[in-house]
Structures are given as C-alpha cells and as structure tokens.
C-alpha cells in the first residue's frame, strides 16, 4: 500500500471473521431502526445542560449557551462557607494562581467557573464579596442558581459520590476541577489542589497548539515520598 492509498479515505476494515459458520437459524431481521444522525453541534449541545444561572455580578446566564459553548473552560464546585479544613478557600486560592498563570487569556478564550453547592446561601451578593475578597479578575465567574438545577448540573458533570450518604456531604464534591475545550469535545479533570502550574499544563496539553510535556524525565526532582 502506498502513502496515497493509505491516507485516502477510511479503511472500512471488518474485524476478522474466521470460523466459517454454517449459517444458523436466526430471528427474522428487525425493521431497520431509524437512528438519529445529529451534527457535531447538536451532539455537543446534548451533552451539557443549559440551565439558567446567575453570576456574582447579578447577570442571568445560560450554562451552555453563554458559558460553555465554543470556549475553553475550567469548572469547579464550592461553597463560600466551607469551613472544616477550609478546602474551598484554599481551592479558590489555588485557582487564583491558575488565573494568574493563564494571564490575559482568562476572559478572552479561557474562562473559569466556580459554581456554588449552596445556592440558597450563596446569593450573587455573597459571591460578589467572595470574589472581591480573593481579588478575582475578569473572566472568572462565581455562579448560583435554583438549587435543584445546580444539583442536576453537578450530577450531569459527574461530581457525584456513588455512596448516597457521602453524596449528601457537599465536602465530597469540591475536590476536582474539570477542564475542557468544548468545540473539540475534549474534557478531563484533576484535583483542584494540584499544583497550579500543573493544572495550566494539563490544559495546554489538550490544546492543538499547546505546549507539550518533555519526553525526558523532569529535571527538577521532587522529594522521595515513598
């Protein structure tokens, strides 16, 4: 096979069919089901909820249409009065570092969304104070909404614990940040408290023209933890 033949078109290669079965009596063929053939755009839209949310600036937005569609995003869940080990503020602090590292891109082609797990308490006003407290820059929205909607949104983004008792504990849902390039349908996630520089790297690795990891071991050895 030469190069042109190879690259031309998709090889519709059936997986092996050895065995040479004597044809078995099989049920009569069903009516061919008519399956939908959505466009890429329709498929993308079907994957992400388009619920109404309110930003810390008091603006009403639609999750998919206004926040996700066509954008590169980082999404986490939190609540402002998450005390205990104070994971939420530290997470927010870590994302502040991420925002700094991403620099001018935040607000242009990269957006950060922090969605409250306690919308009843975290009104736009409370969120605004919180954002101001962290000196959050534009391009990062803190979001609240109807509690059932947010609950559905959380589940739809896979921020769920399979143990129902643990699932009721909001502190189980604040550990991961999701990042995605929506137009390319590339989605992944990592712990919110990963090194901020690492989070920025993971995002860049996903981007078609982003920076790539070195194929050599890292020059800066970490402490042996084992």
């Amino acid at each position: 096979m030469n190069r042109r033949q190879f690259l031309g078109g998709l090889a519709v290669a059936a997986l092996g069919s050895t065995g040479l079965a004597s044809v078995q009596t099989q049920p009569a063929p069903r009516d061919k089901k008519s399956f939908a053939e959505p466009t890429g755009e329709e498929r993308r839209r079907s994957r992400i909820l388009n619920i109404a949310l309110r930003t810390h600036e008091g603006k009403e937005v639609r999750f998919y249409d206004d926040l996700i569609r066509g954008k590169t995003v980082l999404i986490n869940f939190f609540y402002t009065h998450c005390v205990g080990e104070a994971l939420c503020p530290i997470t927010t602090a870590n994302l502040v570092k991420v925002q700094e590292l991403l620099g001018h891109r935040v607000g242009q082609d990269v957006f950060i969304y922090s969605i409250t797990l306690d919308p009843h308490h975290d009104t736009p006003d409370v969120l605004k104070k919180y954002a101001r407290g962290f000196r959050v820059k534009p391009g990062w929205l803190f979001l609240t909404g109807a509690k059932d909607d947010i609950e559905t949104l959380r589940r739809s983004l896979g921020i769920v614990d399979p143990d129902p008792a643990r699932d009721k504990d909001p502190s189980q849902h604040i550990g991961m940040v999701r990042y995605g390039i929506e137009p390319l349908e590339r989605w992944a996630s990592c712990p919110c408290l990963s090194d901020a520089a690492a989070i920025v790297k993971y995002l860049a690795w996903m981007e078609p023209e982003g920076k790539r990891p070195s194929p050599w071991p890292p020059k800066r050895p970490g402490a042996s933890k084992g």
Partner: peptide
C-alpha cells in the same frame, strides 16, 4: 509504602496529588 486514597472526591497517593514535574521515588 504507597497509600491510595480518596480525598474530597479526588484521588491521592500518599496524600499527594499527581504532579508532572515530580518524581516520587528514585
């Protein structure tokens, strides 16, 4: 020793998150 655990919905090994710049043992 390597302890695999879950912390607030995230996976940790020996309490630490993966870091592409860190080698954990030599």
């Amino acid at each position: 020793e390597w302890k695999f655990d879950r912390s607030n919905g995230a996976w940790v090994v020996n309490g630490a998150f993966f870091d592409p710049d860190v080698i954990s043992a030599f």
